[in-house]
Design a protein around this nucleic acid. Structure first.
Lengths: 229, 229
DNA sequence: CGAAATCTTGACCGATCTCAACTTACGTGG
DNA sequence: CCACGTAAGTTGAGATCGGTCAAGATTTCG
């Protein structure tokens, strides 16, 4: 297994991608760069698995990575998809140090790593980084708790509609949204089956709320209608 | 760290309850105490509501507080119950400053508050507090994401069984668990209805997995059986 | 002790999952 | 660059789970 380990080049690009580090001085970024390693993963390769010991923060510098979990009864659920600048592995860094989720490269990807020790050193040295991470964590927590409530109280149809409306938001209001993942992954993300998702989308289309364009794009024709479901 | 018996304001007692502050020196705790205020709430009173502007961290020093959310379509879901030493309001502190959840006193409670400015000052001054909060946040995130996966993939029956087994863990393995909330709240927490919850528990009892003792206690007779559902 | 809230039980219905057959899209090697 | 095989997506039929509504039982608390 030959992963190329660079020592310098992509780091700079990668580090400056991460919002958390945005506010740092050049010299501080330089400091951090010295403690990072970059690794390349082929499409389909696992970056880590549940149960693995965690010892570093992984930052996606290029590519696309999916994070998923297995439930107690062994069913898979897609948790999120990472693009350049997103990071993962943070949870295990402050606690148990055992990953509870799986990270898999969806395409060939470059991942930048910062070891736990290095990170903690920076946190003590530059307290403002902590504040950034705290902010990031609290956003994630907010989002995750919202998601729990949604799963606990909304039916599948509504969850799909809400997902579509959030994609519109992400696109800055454009009514033509691109799906960031395959249908079966989306079904997993939304806690349903590909069959039900397919049926609901067809139904939405029949009702005139949306228009499906291939498998990867959807044009929203009546957002208000969708939200009233 | 032995507790000295000096003029024990409620603050002092409250602050030292919080795991986050456990590792601090006396003088630091003293610093923090100066920035706190304590308020009492009657049973049923709201501590904050979704939409309220957030300006402080709330620490429960005495009593019981329930945190719940409303979903997009207006259904309520219980998120968690706080006891002495637990805190809330942290999410809004690092971001939007608007609460997205509701906090209601379930019984007469004393709440200690630290303003955002004071907290941020401490975080910059004592970076180790950040690490503690980071750790707390990552635990919560882990738990919340696990919860999402559970809702996304497990059926109600399984979620109830998993809840029971976690209560056993919380009780340190004792097979007689006490329910921390009323049936209807538990149903809301588990994303189901009181009717279904009641039916499932009766069913569990008929199958010999549990024995219900009044409305507030359950004796687990066959944990393995429950987990195989 | 009694009103109000909570909990239970039954009957019914609708939403969603499962299984299976079929269609479409995609990636790979010749 | 095309053909083919495999993976992904769709559609239908049937089964099941869980929610809703309503009535009755139990508990709680003033």
């Amino acid at each position: 297994m030959d992963k190329k380990i660079h020592t310098c080049t992509p780091h700079r690009a990668c580090i400056s991608l991460v919002p958390i580090f945005n506010h740092l001085e050049d010299c501080q970024i330089h400091e951090i760069m010295k403690s990072t390693k970059s690794t390349s993963y082929k499409k389909g390769e696992m970056i880590y698995r549940a149960g693995d010991v965690s010892d570093s923060l992984h930052i996606v510098s290029d590519g696309k990575v999916k994070i998923y979990r297995l439930s107690e009864s062994g069913k898979e659920q897609l948790v999120r998809i990472l693009g350049p600048g997103d990071f993962t592995g943070e949870l295990a860094l402050f606690n148990e140090s055992i990953h509870e989720s799986y990270a898999e490269a969806m395409e060939d990807s470059d991942i930048c790593m910062i070891t736990r020790e290095a990170l903690q050193r920076f946190l003590m040295e530059f307290p403002s980084i902590s504040l950034m991470i705290l902010s990031e964590f609290s956003k994630r927590l907010e989002k995750s708790e919202k998601q729990v409530t949604r799963f606990a109280t909304e039916k599948v149809e509504t969850r799909i509609a809400l997902f579509l409306s959030e994609r519109v938001e992400d696109e800055g209001g454009r009514m033509e949204i691109s799906l960031p993942m395959a249908r079966k992954d989306l079904a997993s993300y939304l806690g349903t089956t590909p069959e039900t998702l397919s049926r609901k989308l067809t139904e939405f289309e029949k009702e005139g709320y949306i228009k499906q364009i291939g498998y990867k794009k959807i044009k929203i024709l009546d957002l208000d209608g969708l939200m009233d479901l």
